[in-house]
Design a protein around this nucleic acid. Sequence first.
DNA 1: CGATCCATTGAAAGACTTCAATTAATGTGG
DNA 2: CCACATTAATTGAAGTCTTTCAATGGATCG
Lengths: 251, 251
Amino acid sequence: MPRKYATPASVPCAQCPLRRVGAFSANTPEEIAFIQQLKSGDIVLGAGAVLSREGVNIGQLHTLLEGWAFRFRTLSSGARQILNFLLPGDFIGLQERLGAHSSHGVELLTTARLCRFPAARLRELYTHHPSLGYDVTWIAAHEELIVDENLVSVGQRTAMQRIAMLLIHLYKRACSVGLQHPDGRVPFPVTQQHMADALGLSLVHTNKTLHRLRTSGHFAISNGMLALKRPEAISRLADYYARPLRERPLI
Amino acid sequence: MPRKYATPASVPCAQCPLRRVGAFSANTPEEIAFIQQLKSGDIVLGAGAVLSREGVNIGQLHTLLEGWAFRFRTLSSGARQILNFLLPGDFIGLQERLGAHSSHGVELLTTARLCRFPAARLRELYTHHPSLGYDVTWIAAHEELIVDENLVSVGQRTAMQRIAMLLIHLYKRACSVGLQHPDGRVPFPVTQQHMADALGLSLVHTNKTLHRLRTSGHFAISNGMLALKRPEAISRLADYYARPLRERPLI
DNA sequence: CGATCCATTGAAAGACTTCAATTAATGTGG
DNA sequence: CCACATTAATTGAAGTCTTTCAATGGATCG
């Protein structure tokens, strides 16, 4: 059930822990102060909570501070397509147009902490700090690239390749925001059903394919942690070319 | 071969024919004048021309004025995934980051006329006209929704549904920019190979499925024109819910 | 210690792909 | 304007990847 936890003390944006992981581009003190006053507060939601439903517009924008989530769409048959996974630093809600119904839902994979802004104030960002407006466009375009990548997988790769792709891709993304443990493992709160829904595969086939990949020593999952035994082999298998990671904006 | 036609006289933005079809939101004369001086000119390319290649950044942004195009990615196996189709009014190049390699290519389906801007000047839009910057974000987010829709099709719909979806979707989009003829038909410069590449299907299966849809009287294609005989039946088949069309920005 | 969620397996059925050719349509050059 | 070349559309048949059906095992939790 979507438990909403007591609102924790809101961390000041200037001290935002995300800004220390090095994945994000720096902002001026003025910009950070502006973001700060835009922010209406932090919220914490439990695993499985639905941040927003399909067809409903919550009028709020979020930045994921901690935890994982995903964007999805459901067909009338009940089939669900996961559009992309959301990790710390990701911005949520740009696709919702003011006053329009949202075409997708957002659900949390883990307990998560989010930073909240009223969507109605997004415009202020553009008028007061054009450079932040530019950043928001960057963020939107970047998320589209991730969806592109998923579409390529689902449309052109075999089940084995899709799974390899998902593993390596999420692994890299997790690492990029500092989630990697000293032993090289990263948290992996994704069930096989989630993987199936993201990759356009049945649960059964996902399980069997995953099993073969695991048996052949490509990866291991235990206690919700993912270890990639042979990253190069997985990358090759998935036909994955890592684009050099660049600093990205954080709002 | 990518023939580049002689550069035609550039149409002034204030007289842009696209602004008359009613699908686009109005801009102030100042905004239009600003866009005008940003524009480096019109170009016309022939069908099959490659506007930009995967891995290459052309440093140019375009608005498609006339004609059709598509964005795509190719795997090392040679398999190609069409990410989305581009129709008049669509903006091209937002996913390319300055200095970064492009992850996808753009190819023309028909002879097309495009309006060109230097990508390096995009920032000026935000500083001089924040509202246009906001529009650009809108455009990026909107294109993502279209890719989302494609991903849902490829991941969750049957071959029959995918094709129905593609037909109805492109039909509506073509209508929205005034391409509909009095008899209800719209131009349809998409080959079966393009459909297959967009839907993650083989050419053979695309052909056979298309054949069944045509035989059952759902649609007809002749002379590069598409007629939808029973739009409701196709929509139902595809599990397609049309979102109300709203005016969208044009840059 | 049930209840519930997630992972696992075997077997049968089916949707879609691949292979291989043929036919239709479109375009080019002489 | 016809002949030849090329691209696009069709069709049949065999093969396979993936799905669906049906159960079972494991882990977590109040």
